[in-house]
Design a protein around this nucleic acid. Structure first.
Length: 283
DNA sequence: CTCCTGTCCTGCCGGC
DNA sequence: TGCCGGCAGGACAGGA
């Protein structure tokens, strides 16, 4: 479930533990993640200093002092924990990678479904490699607005909900925040992507930015320094308006009277659940 | 090009 | 109580 806000929360949580510090030791318990962990992973990390931690879409990049960078994706079930030097950690099932920092801090990557991965690339020119070279704009960056979104949706006959999940259109938006953003923008998930006018695209851009920023803020405020007492990062309680709320009422005033049994509906689009309110969201 | 479907993996939940 | 089927989902491959 990690989408942009969760990955960003993990990145911010890792910064104080890793930035400017040296990696002392790496232990890989299991290499066969979605992308196998390279054989030279451990030796490349050992002795390197962490120069910066960056996020691109749902990917994290950890740039090292030796011209290599870690590419890290959390997949569906990836979790990260930071264990302080004086803190104990009970080994959990699916702890795949442990990074020991010079000061004794441990970074533990746990991923039950193994949809995520950790791999390496050269720091120089990583943006020109796949998948980064085909990615759409960052939704929270300066290169994202209604005109740009509408242009990226040109010629797209798929429903807007499906198009929003395409990382070539915009990065970082997954199933949950796509549903939530369309709801807030009052746009039907069934609307044909290239039928979205500049004006509605602008409304949608605003909604996407608001939703993502609220989720990031929620991650930062509900976890002290982005970290829970057990060291885990990136997962937080967030209240959704429509996601996973089939049969409930979305709370819009007209729905409260209209929909006796609850207005929120669930449909499947491109194999993914879409939750929406037919009263508020019109094509 | 775009679009659509199947695949990977495990945990969890509902039904019997 | 236990077993089984279905579902969750990000990204990508491969075919239309």
């Amino acid at each position: 479930m990690p989408e942009l806000p969760e990955v960003e929360t993990v990145r911010r949580g890792l910064e104080p533990a890793m930035l400017g510090k040296e990696i002392a030791h790496v232990f890989v318990a299991r290499r066969d993640l979605r992308v196998p962990i390279p054989e030279h992973f451990e030796e490349t990390l050992c002795g390197a200093q962490v120069q910066s931690l960056q996020r691109r879409g749902k990917y994290m990049l950890i740039h090292l002092s030796n011209a290599h960078s870690i590419i890290w994706h959390l997949g569906m079930s990836g979790r990260v924990a930071i264990i302080a030097p004086d803190q104990s950690h009970n080994d959990k099932k699916h702890d795949h990678v442990t990074i020991h920092m010079q000061d004794g801090t441990r970074i533990i990557y746990n991923d039950a479904r193994r949809f995520g991965f950790m791999t390496l690339t050269d720091t120089d020119g990583w943006t020109e490699q796949k998948p980064f070279n085909t990615m759409g704009p960052e939704p929270l960056g300066n290169d994202f607005n209604g005109v740009i979104l509408a242009q990226r949706l040109k010629g797209r006959k798929t429903p807007i909900k499906v198009a929003l999940l395409d990382q070539k259109v915009v990065v970082g938006v997954g199933n949950i925040y796509a549903c939530e953003a369309l709801y807030r923008a009052s746009i039907s998930p069934f609307a044909q992507a290239d039928s979205i006018t500049n004006e509605r695209a602008e409304t949608l851009v605003t909604a996407i930015r608001q939703i993502l920023n609220e989720a990031i803020a929620s991650g930062g405020s509900s976890l002290k320094d982005h970290r829970q007492t057990d060291g885990s990062l990136g997962y937080f309680q967030h209240k959704f308006a429509v996601y996973d709320r089939e049969g409930q009422c979305c709370g819009v005033s007209e729905c409260a009277t209209l929909a006796v049994d609850g207005c929120i509906q669930r449909v499947v689009q491109a194999g993914r659940s879409t939750f929406y309110c037919p009263n508020k969201q019109k094509e």
